[in-house]
Nucleic acid binder design. Sequence first.
DNA 1: CATACATGCTATAGTAACTGTAGGAGCAAG
DNA 2: CTTGCTCCTACAGTTACTATAGCATGTATG
Lengths: 144, 144
Amino acid sequence: MTEEFMIGELAKRTDCKVQTIRYYEQIGVMPPAVRAENNRRMYQYSHIERLMFIRHSRALGFTLEDIRELLTLSDQPDHTCAEVDRIAKNNLENIQKKIRVLNIMEKEMKRMISKCEGNKVSQCLIIKALADHAIAEKIKKTSS
Amino acid sequence: MTEEFMIGELAKRTDCKVQTIRYYEQIGVMPPAVRAENNRRMYQYSHIERLMFIRHSRALGFTLEDIRELLTLSDQPDHTCAEVDRIAKNNLENIQKKIRVLNIMEKEMKRMISKCEGNKVSQCLIIKALADHAIAEKIKKTSS
DNA sequence: CATACATGCTATAGTAACTGTAGGAGCAAG
DNA sequence: CTTGCTCCTACAGTTACTATAGCATGTATG
């Protein structure tokens, strides 16, 4: 009745590497797989769903710790989703923090590259800029 | 004449942890420090410069491998700075790639959060979105 | 002079999220 | 019967640090 398949098939259907699936099982975000007689992991559709949830969440920047929590919460249908909301908002903030830092980096890199005129290293303005400037503090302020 | 100081002082003056300096020495981006009689690492002003170069470069997103190359190049004043340019441009591209991915993540996260109305987990649209949507492919396309 | 505290040393493990490899077993096709 | 594919376990490697253990040395204070 319920279609069963092995790890390679699950990997294909979720575009996730076999080792990654085994890793997820090991750290407990995927349940311990039921084994066939020959010791091979057997999966069903529900595992595709769960793994998809994990991969989508990862693609959105959630940590595996976040995902562990989200999965626990999604198993408690009557719980308020305030926790879910908190985790999601926290993730959004982290993303925005990274964007702010990267925007500064991008600006600085563009500035440095535009100034360099392809001379010798001794006159290279990129090298000079790296030795001199105070970008580190800017980023420190921004990311806090 | 030339002022000498120990690792803690170097750490303070560069805002870099002591362990990080030792780590940089270990992997060879900082030179093996000259040791005092009591085996302690002794530094001079030139080490501040070099370490600053490293920290600035790291703050701009260069990898330690990039930095290793940049340092080698900066020791060859007569070499053209074409290589420096290439490394810098590559770093800029990596930054821009990350920004593109993070912008998509941000948009998706905002959309998800805005839709959720603080109900029960069973109706939580964040959980539903994580189970369903196809953000992963978007990001895959973008980052390539 | 004794003691406490700060700083230094080495060596090793831990972090995040995988990815890759070694070495071996089972199974189908040619 | 051999080739090739997939599966298994267990462990090492990646990046850039950070932290810890256990010990030695140096300085300041009572």
